[in-house]
Design a protein around this nucleic acid. Structure first.
Lengths: 234, 234
DNA sequence: TCAAAAGTGTTGTTCGTACACCCATGA
DNA sequence: TCATGGGTGTACGAACAACACTTTTGA
């Protein structure tokens, strides 16, 4: 598809800078974390910031978000979802910029926890988030709220955990998101009732002497259920 | 607040046209309707379109949405909520435009049903929506879906109904949103259990010979419950 | 042998759902 | 007097929440 011949028909209208900012949550060492990086440009160069970039004229906003996420973290587009657009006039004191936010949940290996440091990025615990530039703190709060809402209706944890995970790990993740303890038996019962987990015969003994069975997520069953409109409320 | 001295620090970046488009639902004559208008500019002048306008550099996107809604309908900012931002490159064939959508629910009087015609606007039944320009049909579908989701967790009807309304009216509204019939007794029970309706001693006899009691919405009780985080699922 | 986490069932309560008849009134 | 929509209660089943002990094993 191409622009039609009457291009620049809107040329009396004002153009504005558009950015995307990505709110990237990860789960590692039984804690929910947020990826931030040290801003590379003025103003506020060196301050902590969400991962963001300006959108180019020939780039869709979805692609822009995927691209900046990939460039900064090496992560391929897992569960990248548009959140909200922030468009007050003076949110960036340098110049008018409208920002479209996206958020992403991803599993983080111990290796990745370290490796982002060379990009001047860092995974912060949710309760240790530093002061952020502009309205980025508001964006983070909005994203957490949205994450909680979402977790109520979809088994969200699967994006945040590695391929194999234990049920206690999954429970801890939900407890981090909801910020309250859950009953072990009820949680197991509920999660297993969805019938989207495959039990392996291996155990992870890093958490206890007894060891917990490793499960994987059955993507096919999950897609089938989503298509049916099943509610995954925890 | 003002722009700081290093304005135009981003001057190597590309600027883009930003529009807002409003998806405005109304409820009248026991039907859920959508407000559309005949586009005034090329391309596609005269085709049906959502109510939209370009954002100016000194105007926040929220204000822009409110303003265009007011200019086109005379409605003051009731329940105007941001929906999603559409940013593919060629969605408008004339030029690259990113569009932020907002949606609004409003009660429509018989008078307003007619009066918008002089703006070249028209209230369409949801099942009679004509072909729309660009990706506006997708926007409408997304808005309907979002409306359904929202209605599950908030007593959404109050924005769509006049100050005084009957319970059968409210039920019809929910049936329009959900596109399925609801049980009279269960609906009453549920709606009244929220304790946010004030019964008046007047009856509306337009719908039946017996007449149905008029209720009004107790905004204070409602705000209190929302603050407590109560779930209004129907 | 013991400390530490994994794993397992039952019961009471709440909530949702299904269902049928009488009431008030204007025509 | 009758046709029309408004208004009311109950009973069953499903889902949720609360609760305590046994198992495994490395140290």
């Amino acid at each position: 598809m191409k622009l039609i011949d009457n291009a620049h028909i809107y040329n009396t209208q004002q153009k504005i800078l558009i950015a995307v900012d990505c709110i990237i949550f990860g789960f590692v060492a039984n804690k929910l974390k947020l990826l931030l990086f040290k801003r590379k440009i003025e103003p506020f160069r060196g301050d902590w910031s969400l991962i963001g970039a300006f959108i180019k004229n020939d780039q869709s906003i979805d692609d822009g978000a995927k691209q900046i996420l990939f460039e900064t973290t090496g992560l391929d587009n897992i569960y990248l979802e548009q959140l909200k657009t922030y468009g007050s006039v003076y949110r960036d004191p340098a110049e008018r910029v409208i920002s479209v936010t996206y958020y992403s949940l991803t599993s983080v290996t111990e290796f990745e926890l370290e490796s982002v440091e060379k990009y001047d990025a860092h995974w912060f615990d949710l309760d240790e988030i530093p002061e952020l530039i502009f309205d980025h703190s508001v964006m983070v709060q909005d994203a957490i709220e949205s994450l909680r809402q979402k977790a109520k209706h979809q088994p969200i944890g699967f994006n945040l955990l590695p391929e194999f995970f234990t049920i206690p790990e999954l429970q801890t993740l939900y407890e981090c998101i909801y910020q309250r303890p859950l009953d072990t038996r009820n949680f197991r019962k509920k999660i297993l009732s969805f019938d989207i987990l495959n039990k392996s015969d291996k155990k992870d003994k890093s958490g206890s002497k007894k060891g917990a069975f490793l499960y994987s997520f059955d993507k096919e069953k999950f897609e089938t259920l989503i298509a049916k409109g099943v509610n995954f409320e925890i």
